[in-house]
Computed example of a mutant assay.
Amino acid sequence: MAAQSKRVPLPAILLANDLLDGDVVFAAADGAGVLAWTRDPAQSLVASDEGAADRLEAFAAAELRGNKVVDAYLAGVIIESGSPVPRHFRERFKTLGPSNRPDLGKQAGEGVASAPKG
Rank of each mutant, 00 (worst) to 15 (best):
Q107G: 11
P116L: 11
A16F: 04
L19W: 03
F26K: 00
V85E: 07
P41Q: 06
A32D: 13
A47K: 01
Y73G: 03
L19T: 01
A32H: 11
P41Y: 07
L10T: 03
D21W: 07
D21P: 03
S48V: 01
R7P: 00
A115I: 08
L14H: 00
P41I: 04
A47R: 03
T38S: 15
T95Y: 03
N100D: 13
L14F: 01
A32P: 00
P86G: 07
A16L: 06
H88W: 10
A12F: 00
G109E: 11
A42R: 15
R92H: 04
L35M: 14
L45D: 08
W37M: 10
A47H: 04
A62F: 04
P84R: 02
V112C: 08
K94Y: 13
I79H: 06
P84A: 07
S48W: 04
A27G: 05
D103C: 08
L96W: 03
P116G: 10
G31W: 01
A16C: 10
N67V: 09
Q4W: 02
I78F: 01
R7I: 09
L35W: 02
N100S: 09
P116V: 13
G31S: 09
G51Y: 01
I13N: 02
D30W: 05
V25P: 01
D40N: 15
Q107E: 11
T95G: 13
S81I: 04
D54I: 01
V24W: 02
E110D: 12
I79E: 15
R101M: 10
A52I: 00
P11I: 07
A61H: 11
D40F: 07
A3K: 12
G97C: 09
L14K: 05
G22K: 09
L20Q: 12
D71C: 09
D23E: 14
L35K: 07
R39E: 15
S114R: 15
A60S: 14
L104N: 07
D30Y: 05
K106F: 05
D30V: 06
N17W: 04
T38W: 07
H88M: 12
